[in-house]
């Protein structure tokens, strides 16, 4: 029933929230399941999700590709392949296996939404869904109105890119994309972004303007800036600070800073 509500309201943010809640539920249930039967049960669940595992010395062993499929969103060194891989496999404690299963549940739920429901059915549910819809629109509205741009509140990686541009350095393609999409997402206007690139030695007004507008979504597709892990891969995650450790996306950093009233 809950899935039907969510499907009728048909809003991506709601799908995500709903999937998170289902995953949280699964996590709690698995955590508190009966100790004795637990290992076998977890193994069969892992099998159902297409990641056959084995138990060795009280720990679970997963094939590396099954592991990375479900751990991309999990933060911290204990989830990184560099710290875990041993001959094609990774070894995990029970608590970690449960977290991975919860993530598998989240992705499964998310990929199943929205359900294909008839317009008539949604019509019938509307007495229940319309208050939800209204509340949701308030949330979305608040998100969209990001207020004035505060460069001070940008994360260190973005500040570093800004410095490089100002110093007249050419940015790599991934870096340029990261900077532009980030600035566009915090509400900077295309003209203002183009001005920032003026200092680049290879500055070409028309080309830059075209690229910026493309990223800003004038072609109908909205680009989200890359997350922390992508920034890291391309070597663009620099000077990370305490707040960085608590977030996984540069935009979250910015929003938190704004919420807290910026400051350095």
């Amino acid at each position: 029933m809950a899935r039907a509500f969510v499907s009728c309201i048909n809003e991506t943010l709601l799908f995500q929230r709903y999937a998170n809640a289902e995953a949280q539920d699964a996590y709690n249930n698995l955590r508190h399941a009966d100790e004795r039967s637990q290992d076998g049960f977890l193994l069969s669940l892992l099998d159902d999700f297409g990641m056959p595992a084995s138990i060795k010395k009280n720990a679970f062993e997963l094939y590396f590709s099954d592991f990375i499929r479900y751990t991309g969103r999990l933060r911290g060194p204990q989830w990184r392949l560099v710290n875990l891989l041993y001959r094609g496999r990774v070894t995990l404690a029970k608590g970690e296996i449960i977290q991975i299963l919860a993530e598998a549940v989240r992705l499964k739920v998310l990929s199943g939404l929205p359900l294909k429901l008839s317009a008539r059915m949604c019509e019938e549910l509307s007495p229940y869904t319309s208050p939800l819809k209204h509340a949701l629109s308030q949330v979305l509205l608040r998100q969209e109105d990001s207020g004035p741009v505060v460069l001070e509140a940008c994360p260190p990686c973005i500040k570093a890119l800004l410095m490089q541009v100002k110093a007249g350095k050419n940015l790599s393609h991934p870096a340029r994309f990261a900077l532009t999409s980030f600035l566009a997402n915090i509400g900077m206007k295309a003209d203002e972004i183009v001005l920032i690139y003026q200092m680049s030695p290879d500055f070409d007004y028309e080309l830059t303007r075209y690229q910026v507008e493309h990223i800003k979504g004038s072609s109908g597709k909205d680009y989200t800036p890359p997350g922390c892990s992508t920034m890291e891969t391309y070597g663009n995650c620099v000077e990370s600070d305490d707040l960085c450790r608590r977030i996984s996306h540069p935009l979250s950093y910015y929003r938190l800073r704004i919420k807290r009233g910026t400051g350095a």
Binding site: Y63, S65, D66, I68, R69, T71, G72, P77, R80, L81, V82, N83, L85, S229, T230, E232, T233, G235
Partner: peptide, 26 residues
């Protein structure tokens, strides 16, 4: 088992090969 890995997961493999994310402290 590798064919359906997304871009994000493939980057995790890249990070492995380039030692990205290895921290002496950790």
């Amino acid at each position: 088992r590798l064919l359906t890995l997304g871009s994000h997961e493939r980057r995790e493999v890249v990070n492995y090969l380039t030692g990205t994310g290895l921290e002496p402290e950790y």
